[in-house]
């Protein structure tokens, strides 16, 4: 089965890295994965999007067509890509005001806040987001993601990023519990 992820936000938030780590985790579990990106000419601040396709089968088309999961960390990305969502789930940062016209199932999670306040580093918001995305989608095991994160993040930041990842999984579990209520 083909599962499509779209990670969107602002250039510099590290969503491309999050996409790469997700794809690498899938490969560690012997699945196929393709990651693509789309961004403007600016390195920081412009709209940025990474996509990851994960499948047990051959992946012919590398882009997301009807994402199963959209991550949106900014109001702009929520507005732009949220409106395109069909069957999938939107995971949006709780700093973004929800728009009633965006009908897809939406989960709001305090990703940026958790990175800044609980972990104490805003730069790890991408890895918190990755934990949330993986926790909600169940696409790869937490242990596999830990390994994938350790393989990719800069030396010396492993522990910081792992706590960010675990925080993400915690947020996902909390959201799951709320949904179950």
């Amino acid at each position: 089965m083909r599962t499509e992820f779209r990670l969107s936000g602002s250039g510099g938030q590290g969503l491309l890295l999050a996409g790469i780590v997700l794809a690498e985790a899938a490969i560690l579990e012997d699945k196929n994965a393709v990651q693509t990106q789309s961004y403007g000419p600016e390195a920081r601040g412009g709209a940025s999007k990474a996509e990851v396709i994960i499948s047990e089968e051959d992946i012919d088309y590398p882009k997301a067509t009807d994402p199963d999961f959209l991550l949106a960390l900014t109001a702009e990305s929520y507005k732009t890509f949220g409106a395109l969502m069909g069957k999938g789930i939107i995971i949006v940062d709780s700093s973004v005001a929800l728009n009633p016209e965006i009908k897809a199932r939406t989960i709001s999670a305090p990703i940026l806040k958790a990175a800044a306040e609980d972990i104490g580093k805003r730069v790890v918001a991408n890895i918190v987001a990755l934990g949330v995305l993986a926790g909600i989608s169940g696409i790869v095991a937490e242990k596999t993601l830990e390994l994938a994160v350790k393989n990719r993040v800069p030396k010396g930041t492993e522990e910081l990023n792992l706590s960010a990842l675990h925080k993400g999984f915690e947020l996902a579990a909390a959201v799951g519990a709320r949904q179950a209520d």
């Binding site: 794809a23 490969i27 994965a33 393709v34 990651q35 693509t36 990106q37 992946i59 590398p62």
Partner: peptide, 9 residues
Amino acid sequence: EVIGHMREK
């Protein structure tokens, strides 16, 4: 651009 930037297994 797609072929150059795409990551694949």
